[in-house]
Design a protein around this nucleic acid. Structure first.
Length: 941
DNA sequence: CAGTGAGCGAGCTTCCGCTTGACTT
């Protein structure tokens, strides 16, 4: 008897399938992808580390060949699979039938290199029948589909790892950009911009009560039209507060109140009665996106919580797979649920034939079923509730109801619209309107009402019965109540509505919706305020940069176009390599077009002739960091411009030389000119200690960039002179500082006395590196800050005679000594430094990596670290550049204020220079570009 | 977002999509 190994993606799936296959089959899982591009430099094997492309993990110069590494966390699983493979004589690769699943299958075969026959089997539902059918009809790996996945993977890597560093340089470190997250962020930012633009408009309406004159019965109707012109409501206004529908009747408060008064006691009659039948069909069964939306709306679950709860239901066999983009139900399930509907609700509730739901999203890959209760006959929510937690029970109930409802009969009903008319004193015809609703047959609504918790209660709410009325019948009007309304800005996105929007755009996959949300939350691009997603000023800066400099990449249709191209690759109409080449390097010279034409790839790269690589490199210098980080707020009453800026220490407001931090919880759309002015004018919380008796100027304690400092006098915007400032000593605190101490600090530098030999003055002061004394250009450090006040001329003279001390004592004591380095024969020690713990042999130093610890690092590991460091060559000295940077910064700042145009010219000049050099010597030009870019951006950041 | 004079071991951040535990709080 032959024995076969079946590999699926999910352990829970493996368990179920093993039960269906029985003896002769071992079922194990890959637990998702087993290999991927290296995530970071330390994951790159040593032999590739020196390659220019190691940073990307893709050899962009040689056909975009990807470098795959086995995820360290998957190593044990791969070993397990290898061991199992030795015991069988046949392998079935049964990963999902979609792009990623086909790729996992290919990687498995590559890594396991099986010596036994390999078959690819696929199924879309986990039923005994489907599994057996799949075993009986194996196929081969679809290499083109694998290629399409690889192309997708590489494009995402190039996008993410090329564009993110641009953000680090121009905005702040650790930011990220990607095909999916950047679009998600942009969606939220655009909505906030719409809210900022939004201008409220006021409009008035009216309600009134009408009673039958013959018989009993009354109803409340709302004013609908005046002289045949429909009264304006919220949707008749545009976002600037103007009426879109010109022929609308608009009432202001005064007019509405006057009208109400006029209508009292008038004659009213029914002008029309209209009934219309309607029909509503159930929603399709859940897939991941709709499950997250409904669980968000009905249960107030976040996307992540929904998925965690669903995972537990799945693992325990209560529901089918929860990461799916399909709304298809297995035939067995349909049969079962129809039986159940007939039993529970009766045959009337059962359509003649099962409902089929067409796929909604173009990019859907439908490797699985819809999310539904498992089995031919579903366990009832009550039954399941007994054996699972509260969250699981609620989610299961939701899934059960939605699935059952999806196969039930349409709901049918009637609407009844009544119009009532009366005439004012001056002959204005006022028409009121009310709509009643009767459900004649509830159909699926018996089981499930979208967005509602209790279908039975909801059914009652949906019905609105009106008294029987006939046309021409007279009515008594009373209780005329004018009501004022305001248009509302577009609502902020919630997790659920963002997922819905992403899905519409084809952006993201079922397995990633929840993680997209957590990515943009973790990066600080959005935060949650109850369920609303509020973008940060940082997000505004990031989105602005991307829109201006990489517009194609954040185009909402980018992913849709990419999917078209991937389809072309998967169907063999196009090849991945030229497609990637065009995305990354742009279109070649016209001569090449004929040579590379005909591969069918047409979309992603068509949007720009310049490839990503050149865009990033050439534009780095042109991106004006200062400009990108500025979000204009407006101009105040005095004509002063106010901008919000994203700084290294968070967002702040700027108005001329005034700055103030923006509170963390300030939503961008609430930061109006008025609010900004209020913040800028508010007292900063700085304390005034008193006044300087000599100058009569006030003395303040302030918190600044470099800690607490004291300041003499206030900043005078008309004068170029800045007030004198001085940092507090480490021994001082803002709370306990006295005026006397402050004045002493402000008196620095202290003139100690003159040198006895040349009579040159010696002063003592505090600096970047601590306290020191100076005589002309000569300096010496002091040991304590207090010495600034106590050091004598004699002590100073003595110090100046001594050579400058190299203050390396701080790092002198090694934490551990490990042994000799085999290369340099130096003693290897573990030390603590500015950048954290490191090992050194006295010549080469290397930081401990994330997996290392001071206590546990071994001699062998230290030798390895030092060797790796050695191989990368000497560190480039950046000292001079840093100095230049600082000098340039000041110059540029001044220049920027006075003559901004000159700066732009300079930037352009640089760019042209770069381009010229690039043609002649590629590598040399690269360096120049980088240097130029660095200079430009540091001068503007 | 204030302003000052040395020199010291740099290294790393980041993408999207497949999947679970193993950790801690």
């Amino acid at each position: 008897m032959t024995k076969s190994l079946v590999i699926v993606e999910s352990p829970a799936k493996a368990k179920t399938i093993a039960g269906y296959l029985g003896a002769g089959f071992v079922v194990e899982s890959s637990i998702g992808h087993i290999r991927d591009l290296p995530k970071r430099a330390s994951d790159v094997p040593a032999q590739y580390k020196k390659s220019a492309w190691a940073r990307l993990g893709v050899d962009v110069e040689n056909g975009f060949k990807p470098l795959y590494v086995i995820d360290p966390e998957k190593k044990s699983q791969v070993k397990k699979l290898k061991d199992l493979l030795k015991q069988v004589d046949q392998l079935y690769v049964a990963t999902d039938e979609d792009r990623e699943g086909e790729s996992i299958a290919w990687h498995l075969i590559q890594v396991l290199s099986p010596k036994v026959p390999v078959k690819r089997m696929v199924f879309h539902e986990i039923t005994r029948k489907a599994i057996q059918a799949a075993i009986d009809a194996p196929r081969d790996i679809d290499q083109r589909l694998v290629d399409a996945q690889e192309a997708r993977r590489i494009l995402d890597r190039l996008y993410g790892y090329e564009v993110s560093p641009v953000l680090w340089r121009k905005i702040m470190p650790r930011l990220s950009a990607g095909r999916v997250q950047s679009v998600a962020t942009r969606i939220v930012v655009e909505r906030e911009r719409a809210r900022i633009r939004f201008v409220r408009a006021a409009y008035w309406g009216m309600e009134a009560e009408f009673a039958k004159q013959k018989g009993t019965g009354s109803l409340v109707a709302t004013l609908h039209s005046l002289d045949g012109k429909r009264l304006a409501t919220g949707k008749d206004f545009d976002e600037s507060g103007k009426l879109k529908r010109k022929e609308a009747a608009l009432l202001d408060e005064k007019q509405a109140k006057a009208l109400a008064a006029d209508l009292v006691g008038r004659r009213f009659e029914v002008s029309s009665v209209e009934t219309k039948p309607y029909k509503r069909s159930p929603s399709p069964p859940f897939m991941t996106s709709t499950l997250q939306q409904e669980a968000g709306r009905k249960l107030r679950f976040s996307s992540a919580r929904t998925m965690q709860v669903a995972q537990r239901l799945y693992e325990n066999g209560y529901i089918t797979y929860m990461r799916t983009d399909s709304t298809t139900l297995a035939d067995d399930a349909v049969t079962g649920v129809r039986k159940q509907i007939a039993q529970m609700y009766g045959d009337d509730y059962l359509p003649a034939s099962p409902r089929k739901y067409a796929k909604k999203v173009k990019s859907a890959q439908e490797a699985h079923e819809a999310i539904r209760p498992t089995g031919d006959t579903f366990r009832t929510p009550e039954e399941v509730a007994r054996s699972v937690g509260k969250d699981e029970a609620r989610l299961y109930e939701l899934i059960w109801k939605r699935t059952v409802a999806s196969q039930m009969q349409d709901a049918r009903g009637e609407t009844l619209q009544v119009r009532i008319v009366g005439t004012t004193d001056n002959g204005q015809r006022c028409e009121f309107s009310v709509t009643g609703n009767t459900i004649t047959f509830p159909g699926f609504l018996r089981a499930y009402v979208e967005g509602s918790d209790d279908p039975e209660a909801e059914l009652l709410n949906r019905e609105k019965h009106l008294p029987a009325l006939s046309k021409g019948e007279g009515l008594d009007g009373s209780e005329f109540k004018p009501s004022g309304h305001e248009t509302q800005p577009p609502a902020r996105f919630t997790e659920a509505s963002l997922v819905r929007r992403l899905e519409e755009l084809g952006v993201g996959r079922p397995s990633t919706y929840a993680s997209i949300i957590s990515t943009i939350l973790n990066r600080g691009y959005v935060r949650k305020k109850s369920s609303a997603l509020i973008p940060s000023f940082k997000a505004f800066a990031v989105v602005t940069l991307l829109e201006r400099h990489f517009p194609d990449l954040v185009d909402y249709a980018f992913t849709a176009r990419m999917e078209d191209d991937l389809d072309a690759i998967a169907s063999g109409q196009a090849d991945a390599e030229p497609w990637l080449r065009r995305f990354y390097f742009g279109k070649g010279k016209p001569a090449n077009d004929t040579a590379t034409g005909g591969d069918g790839s047409k979309n992603v790269e068509r949007t720009s002739d310049v490839g990503l690589h050149a865009m990033v490199n050439d534009q780095m210098g042109e991106i004006d960091a200062r400009d990108i980080n500025s979000i204009p707020i407006g101009t105040d009453d005095e004509g002063r411009g106010i901008v919000a800026r994203v700084g290294r220490y968070g967002p702040y407001l700027q108005r001329g030389d005034d700055t103030v931090s923006i509170p963390d919880d300030m939503p961008p759309d609430e930061l109006t000119v008025e609010k900004s002015t209020e913040l800028l004018n508010a007292p900063s919380g700085d304390r005034q200690l008193g006044s300087d008796p000599a100058t009569e100027l006030p003395v303040f304690v302030k918190a600044g960039r470099f800690g607490t400092y004291v300041q003499l006098g206030e900043l005078d915007p008309d004068s170029k002179e800045k007030p004198k400032t001085a940092s507090l000593f480490k021994s001082m605190t803002a709370e306990t500082l006295t005026l006397e101490q402050a004045l002493k600090l402000l008196g620095l530098p202290r003139h100690i006395g003159n040198h006895p030999e040349d009579n040159e003055p010696i002063t003592a002061q505090n600096g970047r590196y601590g306290p020191y004394i100076t005589k002309g250009k000569d300096t010496r450090s002091l040991e304590t800050e207090e010495q600034i006040f106590t050091v004598t001329v004699d002590e100073a003279v003595k110090l100046l005679k001594e050579p400058k001390k190299r203050q390396r004592r701080a790092a002198a004591e090694p934490l551990r000594t490990l042994g000799k380095d085999p290369v340099s024969e130096g003693e290897i020690t573990v030390r603590n430094g500015r950048f954290g713990p490191y090992v050194t042999d006295g010549e080469t130093a290397a930081s401990l990596r994330s997996g290392d610890s001071v206590e546990e690092v071994t001699l062998d590991r230290a030798i390895e670290l030092i060797q790796m460091r050695r191989e990368r060559g000497p560190v480039k000295k950046k000292k001079k550049k840093a100095k230049k940077k600082a000098a340039k910064k000041k110059v540029a700042k001044k220049a920027a204020k006075k003559k901004a145009p000159a700066k732009k010219k300079a930037a352009k000049k640089k760019a042209t220079k770069k381009a010229a050099k690039k043609k002649t010597a590629k590598k040399a030009a690269k360096k120049t570009t980088k240097a130029a870019a660095k200079k430009t951006d540091s001068s503007e950041a």
